[in-house]
Simulated assay, not measured.
Amino acid sequence: MALRASIGQYYSADSPVHRLDPRVKLLGTVVFMVSCFFVSSLPTLLLAALAVGGAVACSHVPARRLLSQIRPIALFLVVTSLINLFFVQSGEVALSMGPLHIHWSGVHAAVLYTARFFLLLLAGSLLTLTTTPVALTDAAEYLLAPLERVGVPVRQGTLVLSIALRFVPTLSQEAEHIVAAQTARGADLENKGALAYARACVPLIVPLFASALRHAENLGRAMDARCYTGGERTHYHVMRLVARRDAPVIAALALYLAALIALGMR
């Protein structure tokens, strides 16, 4: 029984994607993820796949490392695909299995929706792998700063996000230690069905929750000792847009959106 969480784990590499301004990466990823919901045909799907595939190739991130982030959500993709396959019943029948009938529209929906959700998750995973949590939250704070004029606590929200991303790998590692300790005490946590697997996780929740509370208390004491009151935060690294580095990516994103709109209007 392996409890692994790769969210927030930065993959260090010297690539064009890693060197991009975090604001450009965050904004580009959000725009691409939103555009995935407008993918409705094979040409637009191929265009979106080409866009995210080019970004993955430029990132120098191993495919195995990238896919490991999507593995925990693979069950959701499978369930979504099956729901569309069996419950979308319009058009001609492609296959009949007793009381079950699979229509071509169901096949189309299953392939299209699963593929675009996969591309969406792939883009989000690439963002977290090529951007440190601190840079990611700094970029989010900068892009959401105008909301502070209407009373939205952007700085506090991005600080909470930064802390959450920072402690996901820590809690994941402690969960693995708890599993190893329970296994050493004779707990059988391997080769179980879905219901038995859920029951086996119950003895792990209490110590993991206690560990999370302990980390939160220690962090609170450290922040109090440094007289943190939630005001203005300073940044060690100042973000700067570099035309030679960031402008081509912005132009490529605009070209992608224009091509997506043109293909979608056909």
Rank of each mutant, 00 (worst) to 15 (best):
A254C: 13
Q89V: 12
L241T: 06
R266Q: 15
I102P: 01
A198I: 12
L20Q: 10
L45H: 04
R233N: 08
P203S: 07
R233Y: 03
L165G: 06
F209A: 10
I163Q: 14
H177L: 13
R64V: 15
Q9A: 11
A115E: 00
P99K: 00
A5V: 11
H177V: 13
R71A: 13
G124I: 10
S125N: 07
I250R: 05
T130W: 02
L112M: 15
V134K: 11
R64Y: 00
L85G: 00
H237S: 09
E190I: 09
H60V: 13
L165K: 05
A115S: 12
R64A: 14
V30N: 03
T131I: 04
R199V: 04
G53D: 00
L263W: 09
D21T: 05
T234M: 06
G231C: 05
L219A: 06
L50P: 03
P207C: 00
V107F: 01
A210L: 15
G230F: 08
P72Y: 12
F117H: 08
R233L: 13
V56E: 00
G54H: 09
L263Y: 06
A262C: 04
Q156G: 09
W104F: 14
V107M: 07
T183L: 06
T130L: 05
M223K: 10
T80D: 11
A139P: 07
A225I: 06
D188S: 13
L255F: 03
I205C: 03
V238C: 07
R199F: 08
A123S: 15
